[in-house]
Amino acid sequence: MLRTVLLCVLFLLGGWAAARWLTCDFQVWTDEGARRLEVALRPVPVPPVAVQGPAVTAPDLPALLTTDGGATIVDFIYTHCETLCLSLGSSFQQLQAALQADRTAGHTPGVRLLSISFDGARDDPAALQAYARGLRADPALWRFVRVPDGAQQRALLRRLGVVVVPDGRGNYEHNAALLVFDARGRMVRIFDMAEQQMALDYARHLARRPQ
């Protein structure tokens, strides 16, 4: 009887230790949660991939993210998407409205929005311009770019943990999140679409904080 009790206790202790290790001391329970914790603890610098977009003169993504300081909220989209990207566009419209309200109230937002297309073959600057116009994007607050080089685009998606899978019919299955970058061009936090207010509040805090 005692031996059985001792074995059960050892089994439970072993399970507790394994769970603690796998969940980073019980802080996360999923792969996505682990990814978000890792980013928060170790910000991820973007690779120097070339970008193109309407009225964008920065030669690469790090230069675009670090111009004028502040913080940037980023999403990944493609203009032919009729599902998830529509929700992302709606979230960014609401974020833009909040930033415009800040500006109207006399506060410098210090936060910008950036949509990056992962369909670089079709989403040239003209297509991105039309897409931005359809969303009534304010170019002072919300910009759109693509990464024209396929190898660089794959490297960027891999670095940031963005999953994009072609469905064979010209569309893509992809994850969706709001990625917050600091003034040094580093991804510092990841939020769900439903956490857009949290993403905005954090970006505002980041923009006010000395870098």
Results as ranks from 00 to 15, higher is better:
residue 66 T to M: 14
residue 199 A to R: 01
residue 26 F to Q: 07
residue 48 P to G: 04
residue 117 S to Y: 02
residue 208 R to F: 03
residue 93 Q to M: 15
residue 77 I to E: 08
residue 139 P to D: 10
residue 76 F to Y: 15
residue 47 P to H: 11
residue 47 P to E: 14
residue 120 G to T: 00
residue 197 Q to G: 00
residue 29 W to T: 10
residue 2 L to A: 14
residue 123 D to P: 10
residue 5 V to H: 07
residue 154 R to Y: 06
residue 167 D to C: 03
residue 98 A to Q: 14
residue 163 V to M: 09
residue 175 N to Y: 05
residue 138 D to M: 10
residue 104 T to Y: 01
residue 52 Q to F: 10
residue 5 V to K: 12
residue 164 V to S: 01
residue 156 L to P: 03
residue 64 L to T: 04
residue 58 A to N: 06
residue 125 P to Y: 05
residue 15 G to L: 15
residue 202 Y to R: 07
residue 129 Q to P: 08
residue 159 R to Y: 03
residue 203 A to Y: 10
residue 74 V to K: 01
residue 86 L to T: 02
residue 85 C to G: 03
residue 163 V to Y: 13
residue 174 H to S: 01
residue 141 L to W: 07
residue 184 R to F: 09
residue 133 R to S: 12
residue 90 S to V: 13
residue 26 F to Y: 15
residue 126 A to D: 12
residue 200 L to I: 07
residue 203 A to E: 09
residue 134 G to V: 02
residue 129 Q to F: 09
residue 23 T to M: 08
residue 56 V to E: 09
residue 43 P to N: 07
residue 23 T to Y: 08
residue 126 A to C: 00
residue 167 D to P: 05
residue 205 H to P: 00
residue 197 Q to R: 09
residue 116 I to K: 02
residue 95 L to P: 11
residue 137 A to E: 04
residue 171 N to K: 13
residue 7 L to C: 05
residue 7 L to F: 06
residue 63 A to W: 05
residue 106 G to W: 00
residue 160 L to G: 05
residue 29 W to S: 12
residue 101 A to K: 01
residue 112 R to V: 12
residue 45 P to K: 10
residue 58 A to V: 09
residue 175 N to P: 06
residue 20 R to D: 15
residue 54 P to F: 07
residue 6 L to R: 12
residue 163 V to P: 00
residue 200 L to E: 02
residue 81 C to V: 02
residue 44 V to W: 11
residue 207 A to S: 15
residue 76 F to Q: 08
residue 23 T to P: 09
residue 166 P to R: 02
residue 45 P to T: 12
residue 135 L to P: 00
residue 131 Y to E: 02
residue 32 E to H: 06
residue 128 L to I: 08
residue 95 L to E: 09
residue 8 C to N: 03
residue 198 M to G: 14
residue 32 E to I: 02
residue 97 A to E: 14
residue 66 T to C: 13
residue 20 R to Y: 12
residue 152 Q to F: 05
residue 46 V to G: 04
residue 132 A to G: 15
residue 170 G to W: 01
residue 31 D to W: 15
residue 161 G to N: 03
residue 24 C to V: 09
residue 96 Q to N: 11
residue 198 M to Y: 05
residue 136 R to M: 07
residue 15 G to C: 15
residue 139 P to F: 11
residue 159 R to C: 06
residue 186 R to Q: 15
residue 202 Y to M: 06
residue 175 N to M: 08
